[in-house]
């Protein structure tokens, strides 16, 4: 890639510890429609907050409560008739609320899914609609979304009330280019990052709505997605994924990358490339980063997990029962990995 990259030793596939991922549970969704996403959330059941799993098929979102011995029971289902579900939008710090993005190729609606105060029936509330480009749930019961393009682009923060309805809305200054993704800055609740179509990273002050800086990153990889960021010693460290990265003869396939940016000067450089082990092929399809662990579904149908501190891939999960993996999420309620297949099977792994 570039001379700025730290050289790393990539372990071979057969040296990875196959015991790193341990299957603890499996959920079978019998709805029959295509499975699109999974997430974990807290839900109050019989007076206790419980770590639940949310599964999304094209037209049904279901909430599963834990039973004994890693079994799960479906307790609520929300149905959609016109527009299919694209993704679950996990909102940290909320209980009894799930957000979903609906649309065909692009997001057309964001809805909050709740249940009635007596817990007997499901409810849904339309939060926003239009040509929505990107959405992310943020700490302190907030949700950020961008809609429109270029001159009419709107970036909005919505804060939820206890009952899940939208309590207040605030606009952020839009950059003059389309936003692709958002990412929080760990430990800085008033800072928000966005990646744009022009390969820039923008940073906002969420308290004032100011657009603080536009920082251009290396053009080696197009359409990079920002997953996580943290600030240390005056520098901003950002974990990106590279869906369009080509295989590099020396390093293999770069799936994630850690870059460092000086927000004062907007100068940046690559710190680490996270590549596939030798003998493994595939590009980034879909993935999730939590703390210092990154997981990705590859175009080969395999899931790969990296320890971002160690710098190399620590686990590979080949397709199970002949079915490729189609999505992967870290559970927000514990240290489990949730892996899903298109036919509705969800597997829970302890990492």
């Amino acid at each position: 890639h570039s001379a700025e990259q730290t050289e790393i030793e990539v372990p071979a596939w057969d040296s990875l510890n196959p015991g790193t991922l341990q299957l603890v549970s499996k959920l079978k969704n019998p709805s029959g429609s295509c499975s699109v996403d999974v997430s974990a959330t807290w839900w109050e059941i019989a007076g206790f907050k419980q770590p639940c799993i949310v599964t999304a098929c094209e037209y049904v979102v279901s909430l599963w409560k834990p039973l004994d011995a890693w079994q799960w029971e479906k307790i609520y289902s929300w149905h959609f008739t016109e527009v299919p579900v694209l993704q679950i939008v996990a909102v940290p710090d909320v209980c009894n609320l799930v957000c979903v993005a609906l649309g065909n190729l692009e997001i057309r609606e964001i809805r909050a899914l709740l249940c009635s105060p007596d817990g007997k029936s499901e409810k849904q509330v339309l939060l926003s609609s239009g040509n929505i480009k990107a959405v992310l749930g943020l700490a302190k019961r907030r949700l950020v979304s961008s809609s429109g393009t270029l001159c009419d682009q709107q970036v909005e923060i919505m804060t939820f009330a206890e009952d899940g309805g939208s309590k207040e809305k605030q606009l952020l200054m839009p950059p003059e280019e389309t936003i692709l993704t958002f990412a929080e800055v760990q430990g800085m609740q008033e800072a928000l990052l966005g990646t744009t179509i022009m390969n820039n990273i923008v940073i906002w002050n969420l308290k004032t709505g100011q657009l603080l800086k536009k920082m251009h990153i290396d053009d080696s990889y197009q359409a990079s997605v920002c997953h996580k960021a943290y600030s240390e010693m005056g520098l901003l460290f950002v974990v990106l994924s590279h869906p369009c990265a080509k295989e590099n003869e020396l390093l293999g396939s770069p799936v994630f990358q850690l870059i460092v940016i000086n927000p004062k000067t907007a100068l940046s450089m690559g710190v680490m490339l996270y590549c596939l082990p030798h003998g493994q092929a595939g590009r980034f399809l879909e993935g999730d980063v939590k703390d210092h662990f990154a997981a990705a579904v590859l175009t080969s149908g395999t899931i790969a997990v990296w320890d971002l501190l160690l710098g190399h891939c620590t686990a590979l999960l080949p397709p199970v029962s002949g079915q490729n993996w189609s999505f992967v999420k870290w559970s927000g309620t514990d240290s489990h990995l949730l892996a899903g297949q298109k036919d509705g099977n969800i597997f829970v792994y302890r990492y």
């Binding site: 700025e4 200054m173 800072a191 010693m233 005056g234 520098l235 000086n262 000067t265 100068l267």
Partner: peptide, 23 residues
């Protein structure tokens, strides 16, 4: 990588950028 290539670093970058950026 070499930190010097990134230019002068400020520990208070967020506050400084907030005071410099248009409201």
């Amino acid at each position: 990588c070499n930190k010097a290539d990134l230019g002068p670093i400020s520990l208070n970058w967020f506050e400084e950028l907030s005071s410099e950026a248009p409201p």
